[in-house]
């Protein structure tokens, strides 16, 4: 497969003024030349293939935006090489722009006062899209979303969801090779989120567009990305398949049981005692299960089981033999908690 995006040892430094506190400090800042250097992005490298959807994740201030700005040609890296679609983005921005699309959630790029269709027509001219290609693209759009409702409304009168939808369509209109989506589902309701995910998926499949997606919503990641790149404090923590990362944390699942009916039966002290008791017994019976961990949440007892060590069904059987179970649930480890574990340093 062709590598469309390649970043090699890319770094970006910023110079910021050291601000002082208080009224006196502000006065002194007026004449201050005291700057410090911040490494927003520190020596990152990655390669992305045509047609991939890559989730680019990281906590706030990790360097995500800076990377995206460098990849879109807005920022010039302090050092390192970025080559995208055979070009260096920040050089010759105009030509490069022809082959990318960009969407910022909550920041529309369409003409505020115009109906979306008029914005589209202007964009068509701006990107010199051929009539036939434009028509094909519009047909594809209307097969995935309800265009009629969308196109004739001025952007300023649209809801946030409709605006985001229009912005995404506008970004794909000139059939770019790469589309950057920056938190496209931020602030949207559940139904709109899934609509937008569906749209992105379809467009990616139909046009084989490479998509770089930054988001804080793991729902987006679960729905769209196979590969994720995680950045924190300017360096890449993880870059691989999303399923693989889950297995780094072992084959974990959580078994939740409820051992009583009424609140009296499930009083805190009784449960606490039960938790200690159960962990001791389980470890006695299954000596291999050293990472097994029992805890309590509200009126439930949670047993974290690594299935490489012991089968879930055995644990359940064991408990059932000892006690009467009123209710039982089983939970996968979620992408959410995996990512949280990484942010918290789980990979070190």
């Amino acid at each position: 497969m062709e590598k469309i995006i390649s970043l090699k040892n890319v770094s970006k430094e910023f110079k910021v003024l050291n601000r002082r506190e208080g009224l006196r400090g502000s006065f002194m800042d007026l004449f201050s030349r005291d700057y410090k250097i911040i490494n927003a992005v520190n020596n990152i490298s990655m390669e992305i293939e045509q047609g991939e959807i890559v989730g680019y994740l990281g906590p706030n201030g990790a360097g995500k935006s800076t990377t995206i700005k460098m990849m879109t040609g807005v920022l010039e890296p302090t050092s390192g090489d970025i080559i995208i679609d055979g070009r260096i983005p920040y050089k010759d921005r105009n030509k490069y722009a022809q082959n990318i699309g960009v969407v910022f959630g909550q920041r529309t790029q369409l003409w505020w006062a115009l109906p979306a269709i008029e914005s589209f027509k202007i964009l068509k001219d701006m990107y010199q899209v051929k009539d036939k290609d434009y028509k094909d693209m519009m047909d594809l759009f209307s097969s995935t979303v309800d265009l009629d409702k969308l196109l004739h409304k001025p952007v300023r009168q649209m809801s946030l969801g409709q605006r985001t939808l229009s912005d995404i369509l506008a970004a794909f209109l000139h059939n770019p090779k790469i589309v950057f989506l920056d938190e496209p589902t931020i602030g949207l309701d559940v139904a709109m989120k899934s609509k937008i995910r569906e749209l992105i998926k379809t467009l990616n499949k139909e046009k084989n567009t490479t998509i770089i997606l930054t988001t804080h919503d793991m729902g987006d990641v679960d729905a769209l990305c196979r590969r994720i790149v995680i950045i924190d404090k300017g360096t890449i923590l993880y870059d691989n398949d999303i399923e693989k990362i889950k297995s780094i944390f072992g084959n974990y699942r959580t078994l939740k049981v409820r051992l009583g009916k009424t609140s009296e039966e499930l009083n805190e002290e009784a449960i606490k005692k039960e938790v200690e008791d159960m962990e001791l017994k389980l470890k006695e019976v299954y000596p291999k299960a050293q990472t097994l961990h029992v805890s309590d949440v509200d009126e439930w007892i949670n047993i974290l089981v690594n299935e490489d060590e012991v089968e879930m069904i055995d644990v359940l059987n064991f408990i059932q033999r000892q006690r009467k179970i009123y209710d039982v649930r089983l939970e996968e480890i979620s992408t959410e908690s995996v990512i949280r574990k990484i942010y918290e340093g789980g990979l070190e």
């Binding site: 009224l23 502000s26 006065f27 007026l30």
Partner: peptide, 16 residues
Amino acid sequence: TRAGMIEALQFKGAIF
């Protein structure tokens, strides 16, 4: 008032 004074001082360029 104090916050406003601090804010006004943030903008060197403006003052000059």
